[in-house]
Write a protein that binds this DNA or RNA. Sequence first.
DNA 1: CGGCCCGATTGGAACGTTCCATTATCGGCC
DNA 2: GGCCGATAATGGAACGTTCCAATCGGGCCG
Lengths: 333, 333
Amino acid sequence: MQRIRIKDVAREAGVALSTAALALRDDTKLREETRRLVRDAAARLGYVYDRSAAVMRSGKSHTIGLIVCEITNPFYAELTAGVEEALDEAGFVVMLANTSESVSRQRRMLERFREQPVDGVLIMPATGTPPSLLEDLERWRLPHATVVRGFRRGAHTGPDNRRGTRLATEHLLSLGHRRIAFLGGGARNSVSRERWDGYARTMAKAGLTPEHLLCHTDIGEAAGLAQSLPANGPTALVCYNDSVAFGATLGLLRSGRIPGRDVAVTGFDDIREAAAWFPALTTVRVSPRGMGQAAARVLLERITQPAAPPRREILEPTLIVRESCGAHLRWKG
Amino acid sequence: MQRIRIKDVAREAGVALSTAALALRDDTKLREETRRLVRDAAARLGYVYDRSAAVMRSGKSHTIGLIVCEITNPFYAELTAGVEEALDEAGFVVMLANTSESVSRQRRMLERFREQPVDGVLIMPATGTPPSLLEDLERWRLPHATVVRGFRRGAHTGPDNRRGTRLATEHLLSLGHRRIAFLGGGARNSVSRERWDGYARTMAKAGLTPEHLLCHTDIGEAAGLAQSLPANGPTALVCYNDSVAFGATLGLLRSGRIPGRDVAVTGFDDIREAAAWFPALTTVRVSPRGMGQAAARVLLERITQPAAPPRREILEPTLIVRESCGAHLRWKG
DNA sequence: CGGCCCGATTGGAACGTTCCATTATCGGCC
DNA sequence: GGCCGATAATGGAACGTTCCAATCGGGCCG
């Protein structure tokens, strides 16, 4: 009992090989009756479509390569889920590569995807990725798009990071804070730069000096920094993202301070855990899942219309006011 | 300027097609000199290996399908990272499918993977998956293995869940707790059953009655349950996993109780955030990343030796005592 | 009645590798 | 000098689809 091919189905149904192939694709060039005939024969024999042959002949694999900079980061995990969801709907499958922020691993995986039958790649560039990567992809004629982190050129989907931290900073200013520090974002990538920038500009416009408390996107590290914050230090923290904000609140708790009451904290991303947090996290919502879906659509557009100019989709973030900024305490007195 | 094939490289190097093919695979049947000749020619022309043809001819894709029940769950995200890491090392690529605990979506993806050129599938079965799935996979002759959640038969890698909750429960008993409840694990899958079982048996052996506070694996839901816990309720909570434990501590904080001091809490999994938590989470470590790597190896073994009996690898969990169980307070007085 | 067009079906090449059997070359040995 | 084995290289079929051009009937029109 060996594998059944279209040839066998054709013989069983009493039609030519190409007719059977057409029927199995449900091509309307064939009479409905013929199609049913073939379908039945296929079902009887237990025929299973062999994509590898189709891929080789047609050159389309209906597969895309997804390069994730750090899948254990809840934000990127959620984004990945969105990408996968949208691509599945379009009949595409995701090949996953987690680079763990390693530029060399990213390079290796991209070279593999070039050989692999992949119709395009969606990239969240590892921190420190040289912009020349984009040129390579273009030279390779590999359809591509970036998400969250991006370059000046090329198809891209991401949040308006400057606007996001501006909203958070303005909110804290409106609550009366003056010593507001920026926590996290020590990485050299576009997101770090833009988020810092939105905060710094807003501070400058208010006539205040920005202050950068550098740390990586790591709960433990952020917690340590917040814990050792002096009592006469900043009264509010604009955090690089939710994970850093979580760390900040934990650090404050450790040092006996209640986040929201003693020091205001804001996040960025609004990952799932943010609403359930203690205190519930005031944050800038960008909807990672929605962004993943949008990015998938942008890439699919590149694949189906390679000649069209690459689309750049900047999503507007919104400020979600909860408890960690202390706004709710103003009403309670 | 069209795509370069082996044929072109062969002509450039002045050798036969099959010689060039052999050389590009660095086959030792060829003189080193010939291999170099071909390699140089390939480099000169910018030859790119076309895997789709190789896959079709050889029947091996060096690709596996990974079915994740919920990738936004940090535990599974970490596990996915481990799988990807180990497979990459073996020269395999991961096709990702996130089922979001939907049995029908899982079915659909598996059927797709059957057509897709995939050498095997690694599955974290969605809650409610019928055991007949295993029979289907066997009938399809698709090499497979389960991780974390599994069935009675078949290749499997997972933690000793019973032992895990037993360790946690025994620890709480040794700290003097008597009213210990089990929180979470409302899902109908093997993990839920086993973790509950390990707790319940240990309680019974100590002559105490087990108590089940049911909720899904959701921080918000767990927080709500813990928050509304009466003052004369359980003094300790054995949680289904770390996420539920996080929820529990947040809920306790909300109701003005300090987890660890007022109510002891233990988790399960030891995900990354557990150590940084406030209070640092006492939990059962299973090392999701290591488990992912182990599972990948088990599946690869199935693929390379289909005739061998499927391996079942049960990993021993260890109790990591931190602060949330209150053990550290015993010394401080 | 013959030619034409249209829808339905067919035949066969092509995709770019891998795999297997075969040939060529050469040195050593009886 | 012919035979053998080993090493190095070659030739060509095969994998299972898709794609394109060709064929086949039958109805319609002039």
